[in-house]
Design a protein around this nucleic acid. Structure first.
Lengths: 225, 225
DNA sequence: CAGTGTGTGTTAAAATATTAACAAGTTTGT
DNA sequence: ACAAACTTGTTAATATTTTAACACACACTG
């Protein structure tokens, strides 16, 4: 029988109609973080070369990345940090405050919630949820753990689109189903399992064991060449 | 002046001399996890097609990945789960128990340590360290937080090569320097900052704010086409 | 107000990675 | 023992991503 069409990477297009790759999109928040730092240090202008030093990406790649969305720099001078930051905020969607929900208030869920509250200026934790009744009275920096029953209403009332899940692998799929049902379109998954969702829902896997395990490959050898 | 040679991606070679990509290496632990599950369920033979269902990678890619390191399957049949697992363990270096050290025992450090103790069968936490004296008596699943002074000796005595760091960005570089000085060759960095290290030291960045921020890009639009 | 230096944006080339196609083995059934 | 049904491993084609090269624009200097 004929194989079904490959959906694979849903190509994302910029204004000009060319394709915008996943790897590019992942670099944008890095630029943003560097720009925040520079602006804090009152640096007004920055060249791709210096951005390269700060980010570890090549200057060529940085210029190419930025040029994908428009001509934000000044030839002979560089990029205006505040102007570039604003443009990048718009492109990434981080210009508006984004509210997200966390599902799973185990140790990892708590730590990640706290981490984002403290360190992620672009994201606001709208709620944290857990199925375990014992968790219900716990607070993470003032945010109370809520029962799963309250999740649908909160998502819908606040029009939340993004969620982070740190639940056991065994229940991850049903949590995803629930989230999708209620309008979530992007999920950051920390459970070490493959999740299924409709094509219009984006799932990023942040499996920390895999991160560490693949690193070990590089720790071994390399009696070079 | 002439630009220096691009070191960029240090190409890793397999036995046959062809290049082994970073993306491939990151898929290996995924295969390994699936195989562990299959073996637990007493599945002896698995086809690339079924592996595709379980992992989300295409069957073609899986066959290609595995063929990079040798011919582990049987035509007409599939792959023997236990045999393939053994081979992959050898390739990734996870056949021997790997000991790692964690630096930074804040909330995230504690959660990640706990997580790996419980969920990562291939890695053993040899120690967790923190500069803050207040942390010193804390225990994470029986592992006591130790002062930074004890770090060099432990690394050297046990020949540890891999470390995970969850310290504030401000001190991350000096921690890296210390680790490298004492023989660490691979670092998983959770601090939101670019770190410098000699070319033979591998640093993987696991910046969780970036993960979440780049996801937001995908949560917005996509009035398709 | 030319001339020079600097750094972007763009286009072309090279390197990587993914997808597809298919030949070559294996097993199973008859 | 042969044919049919499968599924791998390999080679070729395609697509994507990265790197390089350079023309073009601006700023500064004298």
């Amino acid at each position: 029988m004929p194989r079904e069409k490959k959906p694979q990477n849903p190509p994302v297009k910029d204004k000009k109609g060319s394709k915008t790759s996943k790897s590019l999109i992942k670099r944008l928040p890095v630029y943003l973080r560097i720009l925040d730092n520079l602006i804090r240090r009152d640096v007004d202008i920055i060249s791709s070369r210096v951005l390269s030093d700060e980010t570890g990406f090549t200057a060529e790649q940085i210029r190419k990345d930025l040029a994908t969305f428009g001509a934000f720099g000044t030839r002979g001078t560089g990029y205006n940090t505040s102007y570039l930051r604003e443009k990048l905020l718009k492109i990434t969607g981080l210009d508006k405050q984004i509210r997200i929900v966390v599902v799973g208030s185990g140790h990892l869920g708590k730590a990640l919630t706290r981490y984002n509250i403290l360190k992620n200026p672009y994201v606001e934790i709208a709620g944290i949820f857990d199925a375990n009744p014992d968790e219900l009275d716990n607070e993470i920096l003032g945010i109370k753990v809520q029962p799963m029953e309250d999740l649908p209403l909160l998502i819908k009332e606040q029009g939340i689109k993004v969620s982070m899940i740190t639940v056991p692998a065994e229940v991850a799929q049903e949590v995803v189903d629930l989230l999708v049902e209620n309008g979530i379109t992007a999920i950051l998954n920390f459970a070490p399992t493959k999740l299924r969702a409709p094509a219009n829902v984006h799932i990023h896997n942040a499996d920390l064991t895999i991160e560490l395990q693949s690193l070990i490959y590089y720790s071994l050898e390399r009696e070079k060449e």
